[in-house]
Amino acid sequence: MKDTRVKVLSNKKISHVYYKMALDAPYIARTAKPGQFVQIRCNDSFEPLLRRPFSVHRVNGNIEILYETVGSGTEILSNKKEGDKINILGPLGNGFTLPRTTNGEPRAIIIAGGIGAAPLVYLAEELTKKKIKTIVLIGAKTKNLILCEKDFKKATPEVYVSTDDGTYGSQGFVSKLFHKILKTTESKFETIVYVCGPHGMLKCIADICQERKFKCQVSLEEKMACGIGVCLGCAVKTKSGTKLACEDGPVFNASELIW
């Protein structure tokens, strides 16, 4: 974990509220695991005061973050130009646990809801690198909010899409698509589910996994101040007491959480 001042390599709008930023952060690129995050200071002034957490979207010598403009911090970030410098602290937290491939061959199902796709592309790349059969389900409200379909397809051929309004892929929530996929792709292997998205969706997927006795890892998004386990702001209720999204998470076993 380091706090470094790094250069913005690119910052592109990829659809109306989503941006992708590449940062010259070789240390983080070298050390970050899928599911870990960084804390970015959007501004050198004290407005906004706090850093903003972003999951590591991809690494390739540099790092990429994928973000949605939702408030003053991300608004400022979206105006950064190539060559601008920003402070970045990371890698932080505990990422996803990848399955061991020695004993049997588990399959992985990745489920992304909206901006929840951000940490999952890197995960899909790492899973397929380990030759783990990986299925990806992407859900969003409508067609132009579907993220990373191409990136996921580069990692695995099995990518399915659903939109709430049916403008692209199957119609309905991604949980409906999950049910459908489970029916059509029976597997004799153990199934591990990785999910990131809105809270309601996480709970829904976690419930299905519990019924089916699948292992399920969820990446939570919480408001944070420090990101390093000091302020105790991002508390998460678990069966083994209060944990912190920043230090103990952001990835938790779904069965550990009190929903």
Binding site: L49, A225, C231, C234, A235
Partner: peptide, 23 residues
Amino acid sequence: RQGNPMPRICETSAGILNAIGLQ
């Protein structure tokens, strides 16, 4: 001490409100 319910942190103009509750 378990501390207070979430949310515990809220950003304000040039400041932070916190209600951690001495966890």
